[in-house]
Design a protein around this nucleic acid. Structure first.
Lengths: 193, 193
DNA sequence: GCGTTCATGTAACCTGTTACATGATTCT
DNA sequence: AGAATCATGTAACAGGTTACATGAACGC
């Protein structure tokens, strides 16, 4: 269901085609919910079927025609109703953390390389989110307050991850490679086996 | 694929039935990857098919028989191979943040209630993770270092969320309810429309 | 008597990804 | 010549949830 609402949120900024939504997702509400165009077209069909959005085909020459969707009053009502319902807290779900949890059954060098490349990407994302955040600073407009709060979550997420990566690399610096079926102590002077 | 590896990680601690795995998931590797029993049984079948795990039926009287699974050498090898592959960074995906992003099209009172109940749950989770974390403190055993690092992520996640909830409630304290199709300023003395 | 725990599984469904398909225009 | 952009969509598959089904034992 959530994707349908994310699309309605995107349409709240004005009428858009499926193609537009797929692109807009890269720089707005899509920070918090993503989808491929194949899924977007499917969900747009459902929104239309429910009467939550209306569509209009716009003729173009040289390019394929655009089908522009607009949020309908019933769609706005559905959006309001959705926000009255309590939403589920998002639980951590990350295969990388699963690997860490089983550090003694895993390739340590691979994992270290993984952490390093993650750190880079988190720093990149952090810079992006911070730039977006700064634009909204100081505004008291309700929309901007919400977007700032949402972006704050993103900034914290990326910042904490990139700092965590640094600490993890430090702590794993002296560790030896895992041997299948063997328990390895991280500190050789203390490790009995 | 990841669930299969999460199951293999669980089996690394010793042979277990599907039922056991479903329960263990609530207090170990399941902090970072969850699944219903229906899915676990399905994936156990696949693991067996690939030769990554073996099973043995144990007769019981009064209770249904247990089918205990054990990780096979090929499974250990697969786990190692998996950890050599770089894993995708987990992107934020949260319908609650989508709602925040569209604060002017959403029910403010509903959202505030939502934040409050979230704050409670995040505090609960934080306490749980911290307790688990403390048990591992001081250990230099490789497994424990990994689990501590993984739990650290969980602790930070819950702590930052609960603190964020507090700030969000502060900032939304004075805001008025959204009106459909109307832009509302958060600060009445400055709001022109 | 009623709910919970133990223990297995299946079937239908929803969500999301990957790959395929078309066809003109514009940039390198 | 080849790639990217614009713009739509379909089909097959993978991953995950919900609901259904069975049946004995045990505590309240």
């Amino acid at each position: 269901m959530s994707l349908q609402f994310a699309i309605l949120v995107a349409l709240s900024d004005g009428p858009m085609s499926g193609y537009d939504i797929a692109k807009q997702f890269d720089e707005s509400v899509g920070f918090f919910w993503r989808a491929r165009h194949s899924q977007i077209y499917r969900e747009l069909g459902k929104l239309k079927g429910k009467g939550w959005a209306t569509s209009e085909e716009i003729e173009q020459t040289g390019k394929p025609n655009r089908i522009v969707f607009e949020i309908a009053p019933a769609g706005r009502e559905a959006l309001l109703e959705w926000s009255r319902q309590p939403s589920e807290v998002q639980e951590l779900k990350d295969d990388f953390l699963v690997q860490l949890y089983a550090l003694d059954h895993v390739d340590l060098d691979g994992l270290r390389a993984n952490i390093l490349s993650r750190q880079e990407r988190h720093r990149d994302h952090l810079a992006q989110y911070q730039a977006k955040y700064r634009v909204l600073e100081g505004s008291t407009e309700l929309v901007d307050v919400g977007r700032r709060l949402a972006l704050e979550v993103a900034v914290i997420w990326e910042r904490e991850w990139s700092e965590w990566c640094g600490r993890a690399l430090d702590q794993l610096a002296g560790a030896t490679a895992a041997t299948v079926g063997n328990v390895v102590a991280i500190n050789q002077k203390n490790g009995e086996r």
